[in-house]
Design a protein around this nucleic acid. Structure first.
Lengths: 200, 200
DNA sequence: CTAGAATGCGAGCGATCGCTCGTGTTACGA
DNA sequence: TCGTAACACGAGCGATCGCTCGCATTCTAG
């Protein structure tokens, strides 16, 4: 239908991407709460007014960023489906943890949006979609691997697994590059040690 | 020496304890960053000026609260020394995790002060002492149990163990009472699965 | 070429924050 | 009893926040 993208629209979309990049950088540096919209706009090289041309409020930027991360996770995790549920546990863990670590390291803003279990409602909103998508995927794999596991137990296992990622990923992301592989190995040890007896 | 406590001093100390209680409640509800000193003062039933009579700034309250928690941990953890390093792993884990869970559940404000690995400096300050004390204790026990473990490996194990607590305790604290014992059991499973192969 | 839509600016609004200060009140030592 | 120090109040200061708005600039459609 449209032979070429509307040129003016292109400028706007470029700005939106720049604003998301700036938001990710600021979130990574000071966290979501302490990040100010003025700082994000300044980091993107635009005025506050321009920021609000594209995003109605601070949460909307976080939401857009979360959507972008979710998309990256989807493609990075693409190879993980219920078809892979019966792989050896080590391999399954690699397929779960590998993409998560990659996406987190490539996007230092991610961890600021990856909520803890007890976040106040107002903070949790932008992260809910990401959290739900990841939980759902883990839950599906576990259900396929151990269909006889009661729902309540599986739900608890998923909850704990998510909290393990939430607890260890920030540490991995903020570690310096030399130490990181060893910490990733520890993450996999944790997952193996916990999941082994349950879905081994 | 003093047949009775100085009465006026007593009123002040009472106020200070009330302010710490109020701060703990507010921290538990909205987190450390979003907690306002005016809200803390109001919760304690005093004016902002009174709060600042006893605590020079917001961080000082957090510090006082952290000190109180540290003291509770010290007594609760009293039974855990390097003498217990060679207990069966299950028992050792009980002695580590039990008091931590108890103190966290009894003090819902604790988790707001129990820092993540990547906290910006300005947030991490009040929690540093608590974090250092706990890390030190875990490190001492591991060193006594596995003296042949290289320092770097042990340090990494301690770091991961602390992050496991940091990731799982908020979940446990915010769970409703009925579900909590099951989640505590999961925490111990995680610790056993991770620490078993290392310090079995 | 031009009307109008999309994009951009930045001073500044209203709200809220951590915190102060002038002033009163309470309790203790002498 | 009374002078003094500790305690308490609360309006409000200066800074900063998220966000607005009036207006300028850039581009596109017709």
């Amino acid at each position: 239908m449209e032979p070429k993208v509307v040129r003016r629209q292109a400028r706007g979309e470029r700005r939106m991407a720049e604003l998301q990049d700036a938001a990710a950088a600021v979130f990574a540096e000071v966290g979501y709460e302490a990040a100010t919209t003025n700082a994000i706009a300044a980091r993107a090289g635009v005025s506050p007014g321009t920021l609000y041309q594209f995003y109605g409020n601070k949460e909307a930027i976080a939401q857009a960023l979360a959507d972008r991360y979710l998309e990256q996770l989807r493609t990075a995790h693409g190879a993980l489906t219920t078809e892979h549920a019966h792989l050896p546990l080590d391999e399954l863990i690699d397929r779960m943890a590998g993409p998560m670590v990659e996406v987190n390291v490539a996007n230092p803003g991610f961890k600021a949006l990856f909520g803890r279990a007890d976040m106040p409602e107002r903070l949790a909103a932008p992260t809910r979609a990401v959290h739900a998508a990841l939980s759902g995927r883990v839950d599906a794999v576990l259900a396929a691997r151990r269909p006889e596991l009661p729902d309540a137990d599986r739900a608890r296992t998923v909850q704990v697994t998510m909290s393990l990622f939430g607890g260890l990923l920030p540490m991995i992301v903020s570690a310096d590059e030399g130490e990181r592989p060893a910490l990733v190995a520890e993450l996999k040890k944790v997952l193996r040690g916990y999941l082994g007896p349950i879905v081994g």
